[in-house]
């Protein structure tokens, strides 16, 4: 299939008071249409910077980000981001209006908005909570609502920045399998950031491992395990160890450098 996203020689630099920090150095990769790519890396490897650059929130120093044949420069509804933060829903709108409003901004008619909101709420099992305000929902429900809003906009690519990172283990496991089910149903292209090896294997068609200071691509590994994937199978465990090994060399620093980076990641 055709490349949906193409990143070419991307560099991102942060200018700070203690000098400049090279957050990303010479990042090149592509994501195929309908592919689920997970990006795995330790805190501070620049994986959040990378996805924020693709979303258009972060200006690259040099390099190109192509969506189809178009180069992207600023945020837009063709690349919808799902954040880790629970406050990504607008608290002054009900769960359903959060979705209908997003659709309204993007020019959808009233009937279509209502229909699509109902459809996507049902898809994430929130059909009974459309009238609730975000503060009345649990963390997991908020993330599901945010995913519903993103899917409703039918973006060319879904960018997910550790959306399950703040959830408890059980909720996280439930949402992981729900996300795979949604992705198989809708066929969206997804880039998913995580620092959790198991999550990266469970979800991704491929896992891109990053190393830090400066943020580089360490390796891209195919996940040739049939879905639904179970962590206790030998091939899952073998891949887990491979990825762990890739992270490990980095964790202790290939050349003794410290892996400190600004930002939440």
């Amino acid at each position: 299939m055709a490349d949906k996203v193409l990143i070419e020689n991307l560099f991102v630099k942060f200018e700070g008071e203690q000098g400049n920090i090279q957050a990303l150095e010479d990042i090149s990769f592509s994501v195929k249409e309908g592919e689920f790519l997970t990006i795995l890396g330790p805190s501070g490897c620049g994986k959040s910077t990378l996805i924020r650059s693709i979303a258009g929130f972060q200006k690259p120093e040099k390099g190109r980000i192509l969506l189809g044949k178009r180069q992207v420069h600023e945020p837009g509804p063709d690349r919808i981001m799902v954040f880790q933060e629970f406050d990504q829903l607008f608290p002054w709108k009900t769960v359903k209006s959060n979705i209908t409003y997003a659709l309204k901004v993007n020019g959808k008619g009233k009937e279509e908005r209502e229909r699509m909101a109902a459809h996507y709420l049902e898809m994430v099992n929130l059909q009974d909570f459309g009238g609730a305000f975000p503060h009345q929902l649990s963390g997991g429900m908020k993330q599901r609502a945010a995913i519903a809003r993103s899917l409703a906009l039918n973006p060319e690519i879904l960018l997910m920045d550790e959306p399950f990172g703040s959830l408890d283990a059980q909720t996280r496991a439930v949402l992981q399998s729900e996300l795979v089910r949604l992705w198989q149903k809708v066929g969206s292209t997804i880039i998913f950031i995580t620092h959790n090896i198991q999550e990266a294997i469970l979800l991704g068609d491929r896992v891109m491992v990053m190393s830090s200071a400066p943020g580089r691509i360490k390796d891209i590994v195919d996940v040739n395990i049939a879905r639904p994937r179970l962590p206790e199978t030998p091939e899952f465990m073998a891949l887990w160890h491979t990825l762990y090994g890739l992270l490990e060399t980095k964790r202790f620093g290939e050349n003794g450098k410290n892996n400190t980076m600004p930002g939440k990641d």
Partner: peptide, 14 residues
């Protein structure tokens, strides 16, 4: 104003 909400707004095209 929450940075996330602002970015969601810009992401939607506002």
């Amino acid at each position: 104003v929450s940075r996330t909400q602002l970015e969601v707004g810009r992401n939607l095209g506002l």
